[in-house]
Design a protein around this nucleic acid. Structure first.
Lengths: 136, 136
DNA sequence: GGAATCATTTAGAACAATTCTAATTCCTAC
DNA sequence: GTAGGAATTAGAATTGTTCTAAATGATTCC
């Protein structure tokens, strides 16, 4: 609602951006109910407080918050699905410079360690590990 | 888990499906150049051998191969991007029954172990770990 | 061997999520 | 206050994928 937890204005300013009402409301909505909403869901929630806001603005604000490192996108970037016939357990390394995806061998011990972070009651059928970065 | 062409007919039969020329060519194309192609790229490659094939069929074949566990999709399921204001290092657990996404705490030691699987020359700026399964 | 049945393929339309465009409004500095 | 950049907006456009309905192909069962 009205009050912003100050990181927002500060972080935006650091990036040379303004703290607008729309950005504040979008950020508040994300902080308020942390159920990993989609852009459409954020839009619906924001509209109850700011009925005039547009979907495009919600997308813009989300993008801004992501670039300020205040918010993470879970399903990362929107690119076509890729297919891989390698059935061994492996991670993927996505080279942001070239757009190429490389397989990275995943030792069973590491995979076990990763699976062990799940609290009781969480039964995973699959794990996906994806790195992004640049390859020399 | 060999990569010979033979498993194809067998795996398909196991699932009550037929080994059609289209499915064979799509699978061959994936085996032949393992650069994680998109559906469009597969389509382009397959057309050189089977000019009449349609894009819809390529999508169908890829889906079939995925359900037979002969191929993995890298960018997983096609659903809207989700946003998360939790900036602590954490993994995500996607509950396939409810569609909900939960944060899972990621101890620094595990994160370090995971980062250590990268061969020299791979500089990662981020890692994303996603589980899928069901929560009791 | 021929009809009945079912799987598969196909072209194109439909769809959903997102991004783009161009016009407008809003700030912030001079 | 006015110029200039930043942000917002509605709606169109784009992209990747799925759906639909018709045509084709393979199997089964007499």
């Amino acid at each position: 609602m009205g009050n912003l937890p100050e990181p927002l204005a500060q972080r935006l300013a650091d990036s040379g951006l303004r703290a607008t009402p729309q950005r504040e409301v979008v950020y508040q909505v994300l902080l308020h109910k942390r159920d990993h909403p989609t852009a459409e869901e954020v839009f619906a929630r924001v509209k109850t407080e700011m009925p005039g806001i547009s979907l495009a603005t919600v997308y813009n604000c989300l993008e801004t918050l992501v670039t300020c490192n205040l918010v993470r996108q879970v399903n990362f970037e929107r690119s076509p699905t890729r297919y891989c016939p390698n059935l061994e357990p492996h991670a993927h390394f996505h080279d942001e410079a070239t757009g190429q995806t490389h397989d990275v061998k995943l030792p069973p011990a590491v995979l076990d360690q990763v699976k062990a972070v799940l609290p009781p009651g969480f039964d995973a059928t699959s794990v996906e590990i994806t790195f992004r970065g640049a390859k020399r």
